[in-house]
């Protein structure tokens, strides 16, 4: 494995293909925007069939099969999650939360010629318009795994969200984080 890790966007190592790096960055920013704007169909189109969407619970050494997660969706369940949002009767996202998230401290490494792993810190501001009318701050780290598709675009087959306060009480988290 020819892994190239960058500490920051400004510090792309010379042996990491700049075009590939830019494509990953573009993907992350677009994925974040689609999630922020609850554009579920377009977000879902980014997914590969072997997707795992995982928000671990606040336990040491989390494992989606043996420890309780906040969510751990394989592709089918994630499809159901999106279908539920689209019914228009998902009360916790009715109306949808206005949200904006910031990505930073992005790192990437190659998994293989066609697959890339990326990490980012995030800060997400959610306006809880359904009930308390307060802004909630969500913060943590994302891990993404992306795969080059036949048409040259990228697809996502893994997104892990480690919340700073995964062990603490969390308000309703029904949007795509």
């Amino acid at each position: 494995m020819n892994a190239s890790v960058i500490e920051h966007v400004a510090a792309i190592p010379v042996d990491f293909d700049p075009a590939k790096c830019q494509a990953v960055l573009n993907f992350l920013v677009r994925e974040a925007r689609l999630a922020d704007e609850s554009r579920w169909d377009e977000w879902e189109a980014l997914l590969e069939d072997d997707m795992l969407y995982w928000v671990p619970g606040g336990v040491p050494n989390p494992d989606p099969d043996t420890t309780l997660s906040i969510l751990a969706d394989h592709r089918a369940r994630l499809g159901n999650r999106i279908a539920q949002l689209k019914t228009g009767r998902r009360l916790s996202q009715q109306p949808v939360s206005p949200m904006r998230r910031l990505l930073s401290n992005i790192e990437m490494e190659a998994i293989s010629d066609t697959e890339t792993r990326a990490y980012a810190n995030f800060a997400l501001y959610e306006y809880r318009v359904q009930s308390t009318h307060q802004i909630v701050q969500w913060a943590g780290r994302y891990e993404y795994r992306l795969r080059a598709r036949a048409d040259g675009s990228l697809g996502m087959f893994y997104k892990r969200v480690d919340l700073l306060n995964a062990a603490g009480p969390l308000p309703s988290l029904a949007f795509l984080i």
Partner: peptide
């Protein structure tokens, strides 16, 4: 398996 905690206002 661990506890998850949900906050209710």
């Amino acid at each position: 398996a661990g506890w998850v905690k949900q906050h209710f206002q």
